[in-house]
Nucleic acid binder design. Structure first.
Lengths: 346, 346
DNA sequence: CCGTCACGGGAGAGCGCTCTCCCTCCATGG
DNA sequence: CCATGGAGGGAGAGCGCTCTCCCGTGACGG
């Protein structure tokens, strides 16, 4: 079957009109006589015609594809490189990002190409991919504060939107959360519950979101008379949460409240607490961050600072679409507000 | 900057050679005089030339892009549709698939476009996407036994490779696990530990892998004198595992062993067991399936049937690449063997 | 009754590349 | 010394589309 796919020319011949007319019908531009339009439509379905995207892209300079880039640390060792994709995708956070992005892209008939930029080589590949016109723009989910990718993209004049504010200012639109407020919310809640010996497990400090959450948390604590809050740096994984909590418990066995910079770590923390015979929230209250799927799956369900990831991702996609079609030229910044979701853990 | 991207023509003029020669240098075909090659290379970097993929695809009929399709049930309601992507990506299983696929695709400079085919419309979009040459082929991770997508793809003569054997035979290559053997492994292990009152939580029976695991498990149990094994159908999620176990415990409080069709459910089962005061594995032994990231994160770490998902995904990508470049014309079938991984839960 | 204009359709010039021919040049052997 | 052939380079024909320009037609007003 279909030894040779039918072209516009074939359809035009079949319908007895010119190529231009068929093109008009297919793309719905300008008025075409209803009778002719119908004839063309029938010719299209009779021939089983499907427009060739490459030919189309060649002249429109648009592909309908965007790169969805999970951008990582500065550089990563070989064995880590393999795990990068798996780890990124295992985090419920990324699932939500993809979900939000896809929801916006679909009605625009755009499609995301998944890319990972964890090494200098991979970053060059992303830039090259865009420069050769394989994708119209990039959505970058950058975890590392000094990720070089945004600057590369901006330097090449490529349309891109970032998740998270870049540490060094760069001429790209971005979407972010008011992480500082999130930290404040967590502190106020723990304080409000009457917790007095509060500790915290931060995210990797190389991630600016971690720094902000921690800063907001500490500032609020300080304002309420807790000048010093013991903390340990975690890695945003369940495991790292467990390790961190074990460490904190060794030095501060009297702790009665803990703020974890994400839900995954909060889950690990709850686990360690339970193993040590501490009841959550009775003995120790735990506040997470994200309000991801694990927040409800966790025992007890987590009180957490909600980050509207899907909406943020959707905003990213919308911004990028605007940049691509030229409806927006100046970089924009959209900041979302966090929200405390009270469940059982605190 | 770059008002107009440089073309082959520009580079050729800059280097003082013909377009054809520049093309040869860039694609590394045929012999080119080393001196000229160097001149061209310099002209390329001086102009900052990047080949236009659309123009290239137009003539080569190849894009270097493959669709990575998460194909779902027959049809799905509107509210489920939104959640589909998020759910699919949250399951650690998909992360492993993507990781394996990307590892194979990268060295071939191919890229995956993420697509979700959970409705008839979405399936048509996938087929259309391939038909218009936006992608060279499809990798389909099909969960539902009677997923119509494989047949659509095969019918259109499009290169595609499936994860999981299709229920109705279809002329496409596929990669699968010997699920039946996996079920057998689980049964033998529980029996070997001395469990006598064994129950099981299956996956959704609409998924053929679930049926196979269950069948393998039951057959082995029957062969060892357990004609009937109480079972409840789960949904491959932590939640559904909890619900299922609660139900099973109500009717079979004396249970001393349980086989869960995946690790996520096994995790939920362990949680319920602990809440009910049953010690794992002392009172009840639990065997999971997959050996995903949660298997090690779970308390206690899960004894589970390992599915080499990354390798399977890599095999898929390799097969598809072969089909695309025409190195393979007949559909192939690659079946991997499961392996029991003994940890603490059983 | 003729000029004007809006509307619908066709012709054809590219978009930027690859790839098949063909041509030239030089090394080689009889 | 000339026929032969292989290697390296150039010319040019597309690939399948979009889009600008142009042309014919019929409605309308002066």
């Amino acid at each position: 079957m279909r030894r040779q796919a039918p072209t516009l020319e074939d359809v035009a011949r079949e319908a007895g009109v010119s190529r231009a007319t068929v093109s008009r019908v297919i793309n719905g531009v300008r008025n075409v006589d209803p009778a002719i339009r119908e004839t063309v439509r029938q010719a299209v379905s009779r021939t089983g015609y499907a427009p060739n995207q490459a030919a189309r892209s060649l002249v429109t300079r648009r592909t309908g594809t965007v790169a969805l880039v999970m951008s990582g640390a500065g550089d990563v060792s070989d064995e880590e490189q393999d795990a990068f994709a798996a780890r990124a995708l295992t985090d419920p956070f990324f699932g939500r990002v993809v979900s939000g992005v896809v929801r916006q892209l679909r009605p625009r008939s755009m499609h995301p190409v998944l890319m990972f930029a964890e090494t200098a080589e991979a970053r060059q590949e992303v830039v090259g991919y865009l420069r050769q016109g394989s994708a119209d723009g990039a959505l970058v989910v950058s975890t590392h504060a000094d990720d070089p990718l945004p600057a590369l993209l901006a330097g090449a004049g490529l349309p891109a939107v970032l998740f998270a504010r870049p540490s060094r200012p760069v001429a790209l639109s971005h979407v972010d959360l008011a992480h500082r407020d999130g930290g404040r919310l967590a502190a106020e809640h723990l304080l409000g519950r009457g917790c007095r010996r509060i500790v915290t497990v931060s995210g990797p400090l190389a991630v600016s979101a971690s720094q902000e959450r921690l800063a907001g948390f500490r500032d609020t604590m300080a304002r309420h008379g807790h000048a010093y809050v013991p903390f340990v740096q975690g890695g945003f994984t369940v495991d790292s949460g467990m390790t961190a909590m074990t460490e904190l418990l060794a030095e501060h066995p009297e702790a009665d409240g803990v703020f974890a910079a994400n839900d995954l770590m909060a889950q690990g923390i709850c686990q360690v607490l339970r193993e040590r015979g501490r009841r959550v929230p009775h003995d120790v209250a735990v506040v997470g961050f994200d309000d991801s799927s694990v927040a409800v799956a966790c025992r007890p369900p987590l009180t957490t600072v909600r980050q509207p990831v899907e909406d943020m991702a959707a905003a990213m996609a919308r911004l990028l679409a605007e940049h691509i079609r030229g409806a927006r030229t100046e970089p924009a910044s959209v900041v979302f507000d966090p929200e405390l979701v009270v469940r059982e853990s605190a």
